[in-house]
Write a protein that binds this DNA or RNA. Structure first.
Lengths: 334, 334
DNA sequence: CCGGTTGCTGCAACCGGTTGCAACCACCGG
DNA sequence: CCGGTGGTTGCAACCGGTTGCAGCAACCGG
């Protein structure tokens, strides 16, 4: 392992000059700089990150705390963070909480001592726990608001309200919302947004679930919906759920969109599907990750906590159509 | 920020003793140790990771290099790595290469200087590039074999061969394999495994694709297959693809499994689906991640490169059945 | 010709831990 | 009573960089 001292010696300068030639090029004479750089290159010198971090106090690492990484909603956010960071030569220190409050707090504590900033994605910890880190280092939340902490909000509540409004506009008067299980902050916001929008549009809302974000859950719920003859439109809170509903309704002989309109309050491209031609949201998850990094940088030095709202966009596809009286139950296709 | 020196002073011992009390408890008298620990706890002392790394040379970080994290195949592997590491109090330094050779190499280089080990997941770099890191630190590959480098192999080639054999056993004589696009090491192995198994079982193989792991790709291919009357079974290389095929065949009025048997050479639980009741593989991705960590630890100090083979398991579901002559084309359901 | 800038470089301290070595103190057996 | 032994502790060097400050030479205007 070649150190700065080695380079300095080989270049005939002091450690200090070598350091400056590499880190503060403008503080050193041009010819000296050239010489040091050349020597460093031929010797294959690389900075020792630990040593550097020790003196500067900056590690070049950002901690990312996420409930799960095998989740088509969170993964793109992390990707966005990574992309924004790599532009600055920084890296992600990843921790997965598995949705547990205690491990979230514990992991955050461990990370806090070795990173320059912390990104909490959809944290489940109480406000106080999250705020407790802000005195140690810059913190930003994603998909959650904590007083006095900067945060990125992905406006899925607004998006799901758009969907309800869209369906109401197509004449649907009884729609079902299949909601998610997580007692998370964001899930609650979405639920109330749906209720609010339904009330405002004067449509009848049947809340189903909660169920997991699983295809099989969709299959199960589909049977239920097929039997519930008054409902003419269904909104699923997640992509996988939607796929299950899609398959399940089809198996039950219910046609989409002729008999029932189907929409997802989620981004289908996250599950690699541009064209099951379904009405859904465009949710710029990667941009949310990028925005989180931007807020983090702004928060250093600390200033007033900023909020960034990421808007979703309603993509109307062929799975929603004008409401009709549902045809009498056909024979299941299978 | 409270340092070791602070603790030592408050406890009335030297830095050395304080250090030992915390890191090498057996080297210090019981009562001294108690005192130091108590003081450290009340003062809220935490080790400075950088300082520690500087002297010990170990950072407690493992670099994980992955083509993409928003991918139901890779994500669980990373989760496995994380789980195995957290048992040892280590963390993941994550880097996403986006499948590019150059950025893979570059990222690996950056990571190499700050981690204790490197996990290459499905690397696309040439053997030599990967091996070049082994002199600097322990390296392990997943889903790829590089001479003299320890690796974890997930035996999806064996699994897809099992599927072909299974179909042959059901009397299928003409099956289609819809293969993936990536010119990756593992994709090639799978392709040849399919061909080999088909030849051995004496079935006629139609290779379709390559297509992306996307639902819409499945929809497109489904039309093609619906028209190809001789084929009685289809194997999809990825879960999303399978879902697309499933939806697409159904839309084309082809019944599964009465008209066509359908199977995935992938793990459907990775996409949150236990029960589209489809014949597929159980692929223990998380275990692969855990195994990677084990190999990494074994590789320190360096010894003979070990290989771990992770077996897949064929899960026969209701989507495959005995081959029949396909019914004449029914009217598409939609 | 002189004092004052300006620009570049080196000395040495410092970041916060770890660890080899020596000092010290019982306490032991001879 | 003495040298030896084992268990504890402290001193100080060290890991590999960064940086405040001082030294030094060249160059400036007066």
């Amino acid at each position: 392992m070649v150190t700065l001292a080695d380079v300095a010696r080989a270049a005939g300068v002091s450690k200090a000059t070598a350091s400056r030639a590499l880190s503060r090029p403008d503080m050193v004479a041009a010819d000296t700089r050239e010489r040091v750089l050349a020597v460093a290159a031929t010797m294959g010198f690389e900075f020792n990150a630990s040593a550097r971090a020790l003196t500067t106090g900056r590690t070049g690492l950002i901690g990312v705390l996420v409930p799960s990484i095998a989740n088509p909603y969170f993964a793109p956010i992390v990707t966005g963070v990574q992309r924004a960071l790599s532009a600055h030569g920084e890296n992600i220190l990843l921790a997965v909480s598995e949705g547990s409050q205690s491990s979230e707090h514990e992991l955050a504590g461990k990370l806090a001592s070795r990173v320059d900033g912390l990104v909490f994605i959809a944290p489940v910890s109480p406000d106080s726990a999250i705020r407790s880190f802000t005195s140690k280092l810059p913190v930003v939340t994603v998909d959650r608001t904590v007083p006095a902490v900067p945060g990125v909000l992905i406006d899925t509540p607004g998006g799901v309200a758009d969907i309800v409004t869209h369906l109401a506009g197509l004449g649907h008067r009884a729609i079902a919302y299949v909601g998610g299980p997580d007692g998370s902050w964001m899930a609650e916001r979405r639920n109330s947004a749906v209720e609010e929008a339904a009330r405002r549009s004067g449509v009848d809302l049947t809340a189903l679930g909660p169920v997991g974000p699983r295809i099989d859950a969709g299959l199960a719920v589909a049977e239920h919906i097929a039997a519930e003859r008054s409902v003419t439109a269904v909104v699923a809170y997640s992509s996988y759920l939607l796929l299950g509903l899609h398959l399940g309704l089809r198996e039950a002989g219910v046609r989409v969109p002729e008999d029932i309109s189907l929409a997802a309050s989620d981004d289908l491209t996250a599950i690699s599907a541009d064209r099951p031609d379904t009405t859904a949201l465009r949710v710029p998850l990667e941009e949310a990750g990028i925005a989180a990094v931007r807020l983090l940088q702004e928060a250093n030095p600390p200033k007033r906590a900023r909020r960034l709202r990421i808007a979703t966009e309603l993509i109307v596809g062929g799975s929603t159509a004008h409401a009709t009286v549902r045809a009498s139950s056909t024979t299941p296709a299978r």
